[in-house]
Amino acid sequence: MPVAGAKPSSQRFDRIDALRGLAMVWMTVFHFCFDLQHFGYWAQDFRGDPFWTWQRTAIVSLFLFCAGLSQAVAFAQGLRWPRFWQRWRWVAGCAVLVSIGSYWMFPQSFIYFGVLHGLAVMLIIARLTAGWGRALWWLGALAIASKFIAAYAISASANLMFFNERYLNWLGWISQKPFTEDYVPVFPWLGVMWWGMACGQWLLRERLAWLQAPLPKLGKPLALLGRWSLSYYMLHQPVLMGLLLVFGWFVGRR
């Protein structure tokens, strides 16, 4: 059943779009810094330095939380399965393109289950569980805790080491992080999306006026970016890397 208090319309909420747009801007800055390191312009440890690893966690968390907010709105507005699958195909298709492109760039550490792969799986689960209401808060906490429980269990029992293999590590119940350029498994990240859904349903039920409030002028570009987040996500890295390649060529010619 749709959430009580939400209007069954196709209305977009600019504040959710702006929050997603903020995540995209933060991601762009992060990726630009990574590209500077990749091309040898700036020596940084993106795999081990907490300054970078915690930023990555925060960016992915914000993005998936916004995805959960959007799923709450879609459910409240009565989005039907055919429309859901139409949108889902774009996410899944882009995930395949990311794997192909990353294999070309990083054959030893290509992305086989990154943010779009995880999102494609989690969107289906979120859709199926959207009617579970307040239980989503508890499920989200359990999903996040399961990562740490699994890591402890695997370390304590060699019989569970198979969870670290690629054919199962997309679940996220691992004790050893795989060598890949992007890794967003179902657990614990499904918990963040469930929390986003739970928060979205609460806002629609209790704070609808806050969602409908107009954005300040500075927030409107973020909202526009948030509406085109998938297209932007697919294009921003090729553009950034292309610009740095041109820069390197230009500097080398001088």
Rank of each mutant, 00 (worst) to 15 (best):
V184W: 07
M197I: 10
Q176M: 10
I124H: 00
F247D: 00
W88C: 02
Q108S: 13
L243E: 00
A18K: 06
Q71V: 09
F84G: 04
L64D: 04
L116W: 01
G114C: 06
E181P: 06
Y41H: 15
L208G: 10
R227Y: 01
P188Q: 10
L168M: 14
L190R: 05
A74G: 08
V192C: 11
A158L: 09
Q237S: 07
G78T: 11
K147R: 14
A43V: 08
R47C: 02
V251S: 09
F46H: 13
G48M: 11
L204W: 08
S231F: 10
R127F: 12
A126Y: 01
R205D: 14
A67C: 14
G226E: 09
M24H: 03
S61Q: 09
S231T: 14
W132N: 07
R254Q: 14
V186H: 03
G118Y: 00
L123G: 01
S99L: 14
S231G: 15
V98E: 01
L123S: 06
A126V: 00
N164F: 09
M197A: 07
G200Y: 10
A143N: 08
I125C: 06
T53G: 07
A72P: 11
G219T: 07
G200F: 09
T28H: 00
L64G: 06
W104Y: 13
V96E: 01
L128W: 11
S70E: 04
M197W: 07
N169D: 12
R127G: 08
A74L: 13
L142M: 14
S102V: 05
R227N: 03
